[in-house]
């Protein structure tokens, strides 16, 4: 599967872990890590809209902005192509309920990411992708 996944988490160690785990499952996927929400948002504004979906794995509790702020920004930009999978290390039971209110959100997972969850995430991307699996 030749797709792209943008990783947004302020925990640098977790970014490395995610990359390694995801590549173990799918070595072909292109991973673009960011340790801040703002950096990820400015990256998104630099790439031209290609008409195909792009996928983001976003931690809810970022240091510079919350995952909700991140989503609000996407909604404000009328970004139709960014699809977000939220992850959180918190076990706050109201989070999944809030997540459902956001159109860009296609998935919600609690940390730690296990290989099982990574499979689920990659499946979600596959299902929502316009490209066919190779």
């Amino acid at each position: 599967m030749n797709s792209e996944l943008i990783l947004v988490d302020d925990d640098d160690v977790l970014l490395v872990i995610f990359e390694k785990m995801i590549h173990k499952v799918d070595p072909g996927i292109k991973l673009i890590p960011f340790n801040s929400g703002k950096k990820a948002l400015s990256y998104l504004s630099t790439i031209p809209e290609s008409g195909t979906n792009r996928y983001l794995l976003v931690d809810i509790n970022l240091k510079d902005m919350s995952g909700w702020d991140f989503l609000n920004e996407l909604v404000e930009r009328k970004d139709k192509f960014s699809k977000v999978i939220l992850i959180t290390s918190s076990v706050n039971s109201s989070n999944p309920i809030t997540a459902k209110k956001y159109v860009p959100v296609i998935g919600f997972f609690e940390k730690p990411l296990t290989f099982e969850i990574i499979h689920q995430i990659l499946n979600l991307i596959g299902q929502n992708s316009t490209e066919k699996k190779e």
């Binding site: 977790l14 872990i17 785990m21 173990k24 509790n61 290390s89 076990v91 730690p112």
Partner: peptide, 23 residues
């Protein structure tokens, strides 16, 4: 909140590392 979020953050990291190590 600290329990739910702050303590769980390094724990999530630890569990991720273990999963990776396992593989």
């Amino acid at each position: 909140w600290i329990q739910s979020h702050v303590v769980r953050a390094p724990l999530a990291r630890l569990l991720g590392l273990v999963s990776l190590l396992e593989s």
